[in-house]
């Protein structure tokens, strides 16, 4: 099956390893992956900053780039939510609706194609899943704690639970926001950092070795906070932070005993840098 990969701009520029890992994983399961090179950004940073007109120009750009694809996989729940839930409100018409509805979050896409029932390899670590607010509450991937009576399935959790040896930890607050929130992280710096530090403390209490998420932007926030608080002599937060795609690629690589060197060279962050 032909699949277009949408690599969010911050992954493209700051953590390319996530994109390579996703290519490896998708190809391992037989998908024919195309990366349309004209792609840039989904428009979310501009929308959440209040610049709707700029966001709209990027929405049109997204639609032009991905027009010819029936399946668009993106490596961020947040970007997928922007495209699927916000874009059609700003760009009217059936074309926009169709392209938006063909955009999927990475884990959601894999689980929809029954990948969770395949051999996903071995990853013998205690893993904390950081819920991305937009995957959870906009896309409805998983059940927010405040709506637990709904019992919605969580694709990222399904994939992780299918990996041998992987132990998912129980967090005190399973879905509290990390405090990133785009421009919020710098404009409301004090609260944003407090939110992130609270998440790290929760993972520490739960005994996470690895923190994983569908959204690497949340992990940039946690990674940056953990590293700096450690450098300043505060309680050390030593976690590996991996996008689910990176974790899966690493776990799958074990099957063919292929080296994960490629991922490590290209920005796979290990511990606190």
């Amino acid at each position: 099956m032909r699949v277009a990969l949408f690599v969010p701009c911050y992954i493209d520029q700051l953590r390319p390893g996530v994109g390579l890992a996703a290519l490896d994983v998708l190809e391992a399961f037989g998908f024919d992956v195309v990366f349309p090179e004209a792609q840039t950004c989904c428009g979310q940073p501009f929308l959440t900053a209040g610049e709707s007109r700029s966001a709209k120009s990027l929405f049109h750009h997204y639609l032009d780039v991905f027009e010819d694809f029936d399946q668009i996989v993106t490596l961020s729940g947040s970007c997928a939510a922007t495209v699927r839930c916000q874009l059609p409100n700003h760009v009217p018409g059936s074309r926009a609706k169709a392209i938006a509805s063909h955009t999927f979050e990475f884990c959601e896409f894999l689980v929809a194609h029954d990948v969770a029932s395949r051999n996903l390899g071995h990853f013998p670590h205690r893993v904390g899943l950081h819920a991305s607010c937009h995957a959870l509450r906009e896309l409805g991937l998983g059940t927010p704690s405040e709506l637990r009576h709904l019992g919605r399935p969580d694709p990222a959790r399904s994939l992780l639970s299918s990996i041998q040896g992987l132990q998912l930890v129980d967090l005190t607050r399973s879905d509290e926001c990390c405090g990133f929130g785009g421009v919020f992280s710098v404009e409301e710096e004090a609260v944003s950092c407090r939110m992130g530090l609270d998440r790290l403390a929760d993972h520490q209490l739960a005994g996470s070795e690895v923190i994983t998420s569908t959204d690497i932007s949340c992990l940039f926030q946690l990674q940056g906070l953990g590293a700096k608080s450690q450098a300043s002599g505060a309680p050390g937060f030593e976690f590996r932070m991996l996008h689910v795609a990176e974790l899966l690629a690493e776990s799958l690589a074990g099957i063919t005993s292929q080296s994960t060197a490629t991922q490590q060279e290209n920005g796979g962050l290990h511990g606190t840098s």
């Binding site: 493209d12 996530v18 391992a28 799958l252 063919t256 962050l269």
Partner: peptide, 30 residues
């Protein structure tokens, strides 16, 4: 209160081009 992410030498799209130019190497097959 936060470190910046480590800045990589190449972007994904640059690495993707390189990857496409290389002969198909064996990929992990699930």
């Amino acid at each position: 209160q936060r470190h910046l992410p480590t800045i990589p030498k190449s972007s994904f799209r640059e690495l993707y081009r390189e990857r496409q130019r290389q002969p198909k190497r064996p990929r992990p097959q699930a």
